[in-house]
């Protein structure tokens, strides 16, 4: 079973369309509604998704781990991480699954830098992302061309090892850390990303570093 996990927080504008598209390529779409105050959960359910509802906003990492727990309980063969804001292309999922088989890896990580040129804001491309890549390496991650790309596909083996403890955005650094710690086989895949919003700025970056540092003492 291919299970697509979509963490969502106040994504009523896009969630319905995203779920409908994902149902073409996955067996089950699971939206983890992370304490939304709009109709995200209702719209996702009506569109055909299974909805897991966080009564409080706990962050993207927490939402993904809730999805992981559900996937482990449901015995999913493959798990996909997909953003709710519609910035990813659902057609990249079958490509990723094929690439996973072809390269015989446990996890595929999306990259904005391997394929055709993407419309990434200058500040993000030239400053924030290179800085984030170095921070990831500093914290023991595997070396990747992209940092904090939310598109991932993993098999059962990777799912069992990747148990996220970082509730907020630092999970995106924790995943490559766990890949290295457990010697998981991985590959990157060029994917399409269309930016609707800037995403994480420098302040978000500092919060991630703070969370990673605090996590070292937990």
């Amino acid at each position: 079973m291919i299970m697509i996990l979509v963490p969502a927080h106040n994504e009523a504008k896009t969630i319905e369309n995203v779920v409908k598209q994902l149902l073409f390529v996955g067996d089950k779409v699971v939206v983890i509604d992370d304490g939304s105050t709009d109709d995200t959960a209702l719209l996702a359910g009506n569109a055909g998704a299974t909805v897991l509802r966080h009564t409080l906003n706990r962050g993207q990492g927490a939402a993904l781990e809730t999805g992981h727990t559900y996937a482990r309980q449901s015995n999913a063969d493959f798990v996909v991480h997909f953003d709710a804001d519609g910035q990813f292309d659902f057609r990249d999922i079958p490509r990723a699954l094929a690439s996973m088989k072809e390269k015989n890896v446990d996890i595929i990580l999306g990259s904005r830098f391997l394929g055709k040129e993407q419309k990434i804001p200058w500040l993000k491309r030239a400053v924030i992302l290179p800085f984030a890549r170095n921070i990831d390496r500093l914290f023991g991650s595997v070396s990747l061309s992209d940092a904090h790309n939310g598109f991932r596909v993993m098999n059962q083996r990777a799912l069992n090892f990747i148990q996220l403890t970082q509730d907020r955005m630092a999970h995106a650094t924790e995943i490559p850390q766990l890949i290295r710690r457990y010697n998981l086989r991985y590959a990157e895949l060029p994917i399409s990303v269309s930016y609707h919003e800037f995403g994480q700025g420098p302040i978000g970056g500092f919060r991630i570093v703070r969370d990673l540092l605090v996590g070292k003492f937990m």
Partner: peptide, 8 residues
């Protein structure tokens, strides 16, 4: 929160 979401 997670346990609650999964149990429901």
């Amino acid at each position: 929160v997670r346990r609650d979401a999964l149990e429901k």
